[in-house]
């Protein structure tokens, strides 16, 4: 598979503390990659290394199949980024801010109006950014990141400080990018719900380590509801289910069925009844993605 972003054994130490350790990030082309983790997990540090703003202590960063160390300028020509808080020059207007970047990026002047239109800032193009709300600054940052139509867009917490309608607009904009421009997007967030609604791939980072990296569907599978059955003799019921070739787990006061669809559930229950077990309760337990995320990061922290 062709990876736009690929890090190998990426490690960054601040003194003795490992902010990022042995991180292997893989982002295929055209994906919206949700980079998820609690605050202080090493997301921004990783992103800074992806942009060459910071040198890794060890390990390598490869973007578009090129090594960051030797091809920084070539690589950055194809990246647009918004790191942490929006960056801007307060003494300049929205338009002038983009002009300062445009001069370096060498793109046509009309791109400025186009991106301002895209993030709906064209109405305040000639106002000083000093007076902008956080949401407007954030949108300006995204406009600046898209100025040169990069192949890879790196957005660090892009919905920070946006109001609900702003978040929805932003989400729609980001979701349209891979289709319309063939962009690959890396979005970091500490909010799973945010990523869940946009991303096609997810990487979960905790304490500097990548603890999960796969498609969002795989992650959602973890969240599938499980069926708990409470019977008069849980252990015997569990054994007889297993003997019958049905997947089940024994819990303290119940048996959990690992069923993939309703038919399997029905078959398991029918079997238990036929075997003469008294069934007290059959209940569904839903695990939200949020719970899974919390469990993942908790295990890492206690371990």
């Amino acid at each position: 598979m062709e990876y736009i972003v690929e890090t190998k054994h990426l490690t960054k130490k601040f003194g003795k503390e490992e902010a990022v350790s042995n991180l292997e990030m893989k982002i295929p082309k055209g994906e919206i990659y949700g980079f998820l983790g609690p605050n202080g997990a090493g997301k921004t540090t990783t992103i800074r290394m992806l942009l060459g703003l910071m040198r890794p202590t060890s390990g390598s960063v490869q973007l578009f199949g090129k090594d960051m160390k030797n091809n920084r300028i070539d690589i950055l020509k194809n990246i647009g980024s918004l790191v942490e808080n929006p960056s801007y020059y307060p003494h300049l207007t929205a338009k002038e801010n983009l002009e300062a970047s445009r001069k370096i990026l060498n793109v046509p002047k009309k791109r400025i109006d186009e991106v301002l239109q895209q993030v709906r800032l064209h109405g305040v193009a000639n106002k000083k950014v000093k007076g902008f709300s956080l949401g407007m600054k954030q949108r300006l940052g995204i406009a600046a990141a898209m100025l040169h139509q990069p192949e890879l867009l790196i957005l660090d917490e892009p919905t920070n400080g946006l109001d609900p309608s702003g978040i929805i607009e932003m989400r729609q904009l980001i979701q349209s990018l891979p289709e319309e421009y063939g962009m690959t997007v890396l979005i970091s967030s500490h909010l799973l719900s945010e990523i869940d609604q946009m991303a096609t791939r997810v990487g979960v980072v905790s304490k500097g380590k990548m603890i999960f990296q796969d498609s969002i569907e795989t992650m959602r599978k973890f969240a599938q509801a499980s069926i708990q059955v409470k019977v008069n003799d849980n252990e015997a019921a569990w054994r007889s289910l297993l003997a019958n070739g049905q997947k089940a787990d024994l819990e303290k006061e119940s048996v959990t069925l690992q069923a993939e669809d309703d038919g399997q559930v029905a078959a398991s229950i029918r079997y238990l009844v036929q075997q003469g077990f008294s069934i007290y309760r059959v209940q569904e337990e839903k695990r939200s993605l949020e719970n899974i995320f919390l469990e993942m990061t908790k295990e890492e922290q206690s371990g």
Partner: peptide, 15 residues
């Protein structure tokens, strides 16, 4: 220095 200008500037294709 003020509002993350270094970050933005150095993430552009400049050495």
């Amino acid at each position: 220095h003020q509002e993350g200008g270094w970050k933005q500037l150095l993430a552009l294709p400049v050495t």
